[in-house]
Design a protein around this nucleic acid. Sequence first.
DNA 1: CAGTGTGAACCTTTTCACAGCA
DNA 2: TGCTGTGAAAAGGTTCACACTG
Lengths: 215, 215
Amino acid sequence: VNPHDIPDPTVSRLSIYARCLERLIKDKINVVSSDELADRAGVNAAQVRKDLSYLGSFGRRGVGYETHHLLDRVSYSLGLSKPRTLVIVGAGKLGSALLAYKGFREKGFKPVAAFDVNKEKIGKTIGSVRVYDISRIKEILKKKSPEIAIIAVPAPYAQEVANELVAAGIRSILNFAPMVLKIPPQVVFRQVDLSLELDAISYYLNKRVPAEKSA
Amino acid sequence: VNPHDIPDPTVSRLSIYARCLERLIKDKINVVSSDELADRAGVNAAQVRKDLSYLGSFGRRGVGYETHHLLDRVSYSLGLSKPRTLVIVGAGKLGSALLAYKGFREKGFKPVAAFDVNKEKIGKTIGSVRVYDISRIKEILKKKSPEIAIIAVPAPYAQEVANELVAAGIRSILNFAPMVLKIPPQVVFRQVDLSLELDAISYYLNKRVPAEKSA
DNA sequence: CAGTGTGAACCTTTTCACAGCA
DNA sequence: TGCTGTGAAAAGGTTCACACTG
């Protein structure tokens, strides 16, 4: 459907450019150069131009990019034009925090259901979304046809949950459990891994001088 | 301090190998081949061998890697041998979820303080850690000297918080706010970005056939 | 033999540098 | 003149393939 294949790192940066463009538009700035956008996105200007070139060319030479137009184009490429529905599996601390997250709705990601095993949570409403018994995943997914499932259960249950989601025909999964999951290739899969990030920080902390001398 | 420079993607995978090795050890498996480890980590075997080769060579040809020894070596390389202290700025839904996260302590990351602006939270204890007024960052950081700060405040405040942390001499920052932050290069910096991940999923959802025909 | 360790080939991504255009 | 768009070069990472060894 989309024009061409965009490299994965570029996809990630497009999301960041979109965020920067929203800010610029909020500030009533109508034109931005690759230099300025690069600075705001924390990358270099050639990178911005190369990234945007995957979407076609609509900068004006000698001027820059029209912010509204560029945001439209970036959003379109990311498929953000139409709203997306999602479910969250696991309504514990993390799941609840995610359900309460305002950013979802603002960006067009709409939670339509949550699941948990805890009897006390089942039937309750968190962040305007109902919590269902986890055994009803297949049934509810059939009814609501969400496009995205977020896994926010403890690591030992994550693979099992993933299997059920896949069996129920989910098209994409975002996993927060610190666990390698086997997911069939036709399902879009991404991972957010707090504990990996901490390990990485730990590594780079050690690489730096253990005790700094001066600023 | 550390032997050699390890590529960033390898650092991330080392964290995953460590996780797999813990599992293997829990299951009383003492030797593992690069093939088996690769399968569990979701990468290919050459990758595993190349990654491990950055740490030296201690596999036994024809046999595999001794799990205990390898885990020790990987943990050491990641700097996980010694415990790390951290603070969390922002004790809202997300910050509280993070404070409650058991995985921290298990892996040797110890929260020593939290900060918030909300008067109702200040003075309370969440997950065994006290919540301080955010204006006391400098003072408390001086006293507790944490190595890592986690930013879990709303995006508009994240840069301001980051500036204070840097001014207070923090050595590393993990940012959860969906916001590009300017951090001086001597501070180790990583970002966890939910909204970016969702955008990426949205992109790949669009790339796939909009309606699937068969399995 | 089975499985590691690693140079070399391959592939992807980033950066450079400049032609081309408003 | 100033800034985009883009080939080409450089850098960085992954995979291959095989010599080597317990």
